[in-house]
Each structure stands twice: as C-alpha cells, then as structure tokens.
C-alpha cells in the first residue's frame, strides 16, 4: 500500500493535459477492479452456499458484498473528484457511470436484505439467490447502458480510441496500486468473515445459556 502511494505520488509522471488530478485514476480504476472482483466473489460463494449449504461460503458472500460496496463507493467518490476539473461536471449519465451506480444500488439492496430480512437460515438463502441474480444482471446492464450516450475515457482498451498509458511507470503505478487494494480488500474480507463467525458463536452460546437457565429455573 505504501509502495503504491509512493509510486503514484512521487514516481509516476504527471499526465500532460489533465495535470495532478489525474493521479487519482490509479486508485479509481484499481478500486473498480476490486469492486467487480468482490461482486463476482459474492456470486461464486452464493452458488456454493445454495449447492452445499456451507456456512463459511455464506459468510464469504456477505463479507465480499460489504467490501465490494465499499470499493464501489470509493469509485463513485474518486470519479467525480477527477471529473469536475476535466469534464466540468461532477456527474454525467455516461454508460460506465450509470453501470457503476446501478451495481452499487444492487449490492446496497443486497446488504439491506441481509440487514432487514432477519437472522435465520431463510434470509441467507434469499441473499444467495440475489447474489446469483445480481451477477447475471451485470452483462445485461453493460449492454443496456450502451444504448445511452457516453464520454468516459477507455484508458486500457486502445481499440475504443483511448490514448492508453504512455509511460511504463504509469502502468507500474496502476499495477502496484491494484495489487495493494486487492490485498487490502482480502484482509478486510478475512476480518469480516472472522467477526461474523464469532458473532454466530456468541449467538449459539447465548441460546445454550438461556436453555440451561430455563432448566435451572
């Protein structure tokens, strides 16, 4: 993470036309990758949970959804900071922006379902169903938003007319910050899974204690 910060702010040359604010791109794009990875992780873990009924898979899906929404939020925050000086507006209904905000709402609603659905096994199944449907929706969103109008730069895909990253240090900066953010995300997911496991244990112990207390009385 520190290496990424050092690379992005000290080593990578400043982009000619957009200036200093372009540096935010290294975190913006890397966060988007991490968010996507998180959402695919949710779907994978959800399939495993529906199929095998394994509790760790359910905890992984929940943790990945939380972290995915977190990084998706980062994308939506860093984007406008860059867009304001470059495009002149904070937000525009470009296909990629629309897609990101739709994804954000899908997985925010996933977290809502988890939060308000209740604690029992049924809600875990519902969440898994939503996790699978959500990822099926991604390609459809991608195609459908292209029916709208767009101006987002395609930095890596040259065939779409993007300029690409000219300096090798720029590529290195993006690579390192992507790895750093992925490690951060993995650590957060692990932490979140552990706390979910502990919470389940506490709940089980409390039920046991209550049952024992009932017998004594």
């Amino acid at each position: 993470m520190l290496a990424a910060l050092w690379l992005v702010f000290m080593v990578v040359p400043t982009e000619r036309e957009m200036g200093i604010v372009q540096r935010i791109f290294y975190f913006h794009v890397a966060s988007a990758w991490v968010a996507f990875l998180g959402f695919f992780l949710v779907a994978g873990a959800s399939v495993v949970y529906l199929w095998k009924g394994a509790r760790p898979a359910d905890r992984l899906a929940e943790a990945a959804a939380e972290v995915g929404v977190l990084f998706c939020t980062l994308v939506l925050v860093t984007g406008p900071i860059w867009a304001r000086p470059v495009w002149g507006v904070w937000w525009t209904w470009d296909p990629r922006l629309t897609m990101t905000v739709i994804l954000w709402t899908i997985y925010a609603s996933y977290l809502m379902l988890r939060a308000f659905g209740g604690e029992d096994e049924a809600v875990r199944r519902y969440a898994a169903v939503l996790g699978v449907i959500g990822v099926l929706d991604i390609p459809l969103i991608r195609v459908s938003v292209r029916l709208l109008r767009g101006i987002h730069p395609a930095v890596l895909a040259r065939n779409e007319g993007g300029t690409g990253l000219v300096d090798p240090w720029m590529r290195a900066g993006l690579g390192v910050s992507a790895v750093a953010l992925m490690l951060l995300a993995a650590w957060l997911i692990a932490l979140r899974m552990q706390s979910a496991r502990l919470a389940e244990e506490v709940a089980a112990l409390r039920r046991q204690a209550l049952a024992r207390g009932g017998e004594a009385a």
Binding site: I102, T105, I106, M112, L113, G117, G118, A122, G134, I141
Partner: peptide
C-alpha cells in the same frame, strides 16, 4: 417471507430491473 415485506420488494427489484427499463 421477510420481516420488512412491503419496503423490501422495490429495493430488491428496481436496481435489477433497470436494464429492462432502459432497453
């Protein structure tokens, strides 16, 4: 089948149905 029935359906459905609405 969940606790927050009436409010939950639009929350779940609207984002997922957006590609359909656009198309």
């Amino acid at each position: 089948r969940t606790r927050a029935r009436e409010t939950l359906l639009p929350l779940l459905l609207l984002p997922l149905a957006l590609p359909l609405v656009i198309a």
